[in-house]
Amino acid sequence: MKKFLIADSHSIVRTGITYLLKEEFLNIEIDACSNGNTVWEKIKTNSYDLAILDINMPGTDSINLLQNIFAFCPDLKILILTTSREEIYARIYLQLGVKGFINKDADDAEIRKAIITTLNNKKYLSPGMHVIQRLEATKRGPLSLFNRLSPRELEVMTHLLEGKNVSQIANLLCAHTSTIGTHKAKILQKLGVTNIIELKEFTQLFNHTGLGTTKLVS
């Protein structure tokens, strides 16, 4: 019997993934939760064949959560299912050790494919990420400026885009405000913007057009 963990703050998502799993597999057990603290407690006390996690659950430091999970259970297979842009976030989370990264906008067939691929201990990349990898191989360099950011800088950027201030982010990530302030300054510098308004505009432009890329010389 296979055992799955589903973690998402939205009940409708947990229900939908449960339905897909029960359609795909016979004789399975599913645990579901809505926040990172519960994810951690369940992983410490259970053995899962696959964990399907969102990285944007309220009150969850996803970078720290994943680092703790892999320190405790290095062989756990994890699939990230999120609304976050693959082009911005997938590479970093794959480098942290997750097996796959897929956007919630994907159709049922692609989500099933991602689940089966990661369950079989193989890396899952969406068709769009395969295209990006091929382009990067041709150009011999990263296409996106977001690849300049570290995992923690990406995490801080996400919270900044959600409207949180430095103190709120520091409290959430259990860090000093000066540390978060340094991360913020590095994010702005690496992306070539000067304030949060410009950061939001830059990210929105990337989301709509795929811009936000480095200038590459052939």
Rank of each mutant, 00 (worst) to 15 (best):
A137R: 07
V156S: 04
E155N: 06
T158F: 11
Q168E: 14
A114V: 13
N147R: 04
A109N: 13
H159M: 13
T138N: 14
D108A: 12
R112T: 12
K139W: 06
E136R: 00
N165H: 07
K113M: 07
N165P: 05
D108H: 04
G128N: 10
Q133T: 07
L149I: 03
R140C: 07
V166T: 08
D108S: 11
Q133Y: 14
E153R: 02
S150N: 06
Y124I: 06
N121S: 15
E110H: 06
I111N: 05
S144T: 10
R112E: 13
K164H: 14
L160N: 03
D105I: 15
N165L: 03
S167V: 15
P151W: 02
E155V: 09
L154K: 06
A137D: 10
E162R: 12
L172E: 09
F146D: 02
L135G: 00
A137P: 01
R134N: 02
K113A: 05
G141W: 06
L161G: 03
Y124H: 10
D108R: 04
F146M: 12
L119V: 02
D107S: 10
T118I: 14
R148P: 00
K164L: 10
G163W: 06
A170H: 08
A109S: 05
I116D: 00
E136A: 02
T138A: 14
S150W: 07
L125G: 10
A109R: 15
L145N: 11
E155Y: 13
P151K: 00
S144E: 07
E162M: 13
S150K: 09
I132Q: 00
K113C: 09
E136V: 01
Q168D: 10
I116R: 10
I115Y: 00
L143Q: 07
H159A: 12
K123D: 08
E153A: 09
N120T: 11
L161D: 07
N165E: 08
L143M: 08
L143R: 11
N165V: 05
Q168T: 04
L119F: 06
L143E: 14
N165T: 12
L172R: 01
A106M: 04
N120V: 07
I169N: 03
L172M: 13
D105W: 15
V156T: 15
E136T: 01
L160M: 13
L125Q: 10
V156G: 04
M129H: 04
H159N: 13
L154I: 13
L125N: 12
I132Y: 00
L119R: 05
V156L: 15
K123F: 12
A109L: 09
K139V: 03
I116Q: 06
S126R: 12
L149E: 01
R112L: 14
R148A: 03
D108G: 07
E162G: 09
L119Q: 05
R148E: 01
T138M: 14
I132K: 03
H130S: 02
I115D: 01
I132E: 02
K139D: 06
